[in-house]
């Protein structure tokens, strides 16, 4: 493992220019991922996790636009590449798998052919026979029984778990250096979830891929991640190694997220919730984005939170947090 980061995202801003105003979906995000490392991006729906991922491979749909920032991948700023140059990166060096496996596969093309297409796009010297062999091998690698037969299936003939395995096979077909998994287990039931997580971990170990794992499930985070970045309303509010984060979550939002996990066997009248909702991404209030929902702000009677936005500060080694509570500690 080298210390040079595989991917370094700096000050990334992706805005959506709609009639109602500018939606700042990703608003100044910084992080890095090293080879063989799993970074979890955590946060509730609409906090900008998926948009951050899509911005990395430049698949943000209109009216969205990356307005600022750099995405340094293997020493090169990807945002300087044009559209056709990006196709050389996508699927080959950075691949992405999505949340809904069955709707993410083309319903009118056999899964074997969809897998074959990735190889065809990126390995011009492979002939048809070699590609077929590789497709079968990939299906076998992701644990699909009877791969020769399964390759001829259409997506609707597969279960969700099987389809997600096909998606993963597609993701790793070209042995990418970075795999982005956008909530790959959300649509699956729990036993299948565990199998898929095991699979991703195994492949990471074997191929030394860097993985960005997007989820809102703290349980999955604890199981998968090396590093965690907690996102809130388009920014990262806390970034730490997974152990440090679970032992001592610092940001009031992270604390709320962890407190809201139900613990098996423990009886509670009510689950912990974070009161309120995410503020509108169009007219963001000044100050801290979490201020309106923050219990700690009320307890500590902090006025500053409402007027001035905190910086992401390194409070302890490798543990960064965006909160005025820790101003003196930095």
């Amino acid at each position: 493992m080298t210390d040079e980061p595989m991917l370094k995202v700096e000050n990334l801003r992706t805005y959506f220019f709609t009639r109602g105003g500018t939606v700042k979906a990703v608003d100044g995000v910084n992080f890095e991922v090293k080879r063989g490392q799993v970074l979890a991006l955590v946060g509730e729906s609409g906090c900008g996790k998926s948009m951050t991922a899509l911005s990395i491979i430049q698949l943000v749909d209109k009216p969205g636009k990356i307005v600022e920032g750099t995405v340094i991948f293997d020493g090169e700023n990807l945002l300087e590449r044009n559209r056709s140059q990006m196709t050389e990166i996508r699927g080959k060096r950075i691949s992405m798998i999505f949340q809904e496996p069955r709707s993410s596969l083309n319903p009118v093309i056999r899964v074997g052919k969809q897998l074959d297409e990735v190889l065809k796009l990126h390995y011009e010297d492979m002939d048809k026979h070699e590609r077929r062999q590789r497709v079968i091998q990939l299906l076998k690698d992701v644990g699909i029984p009877d791969p020769e037969r399964r390759a001829n299936n259409y997506p609707h003939e597969m279960s969700g778990g099987m389809a997600q395995r096909v998606m993963i096979a597609m993701g790793i077909a070209c042995e990418p250096e970075l795999l982005i998994a956008d909530e790959p287990t959300t649509a699956l039931d729990v036993t299948i979830q565990a199998q898929v997580l095991d699979l991703i971990r195994k492949l990471r170990d074997e191929m030394q891929m860097a993985v960005i794992f997007i989820t809102h499930d703290m349980g999955v985070v604890a199981e998968m991640a090396d590093d965690v970045a907690v996102m809130y309303a388009g920014t990262i509010v806390e970034h730490a190694a997974v152990g440090s984060l679970f032992e001592e979550p610092m940001h009031p939002y992270t604390q709320g997220l962890i407190a809201s996990i139900p613990i098996l066997g423990e009886f509670k009248d009510r689950l912990e919730v974070i009161p309120g909702t995410v503020p509108s991404l169009i007219d963001m209030p000044p100050g801290c984005r979490f201020a309106s929902r923050c219990k700690a702000r009320v307890e500590h009677n902090l006025e500053k939170c409402l007027h001035e936005e905190p910086e992401l500060l390194e409070v302890r080694e490798g543990h960064q947090v965006r909160c005025w509570l820790y101003e003196e500690n930095a």
């Binding site: 491979i57 809904e100 083309n106």
Partner: peptide
């Protein structure tokens, strides 16, 4: 649709995405 996004994420050219993945559907 999601599968069009998948096709793009695979590294397919836009023309290929439209003609091979989207057109038939």
């Amino acid at each position: 649709q999601n599968y069009v996004k998948t096709a793009r994420a695979k590294g397919a050219y836009e023309r290929n995405v439209v003609l091979n993945h989207a057109f038939r559907n």
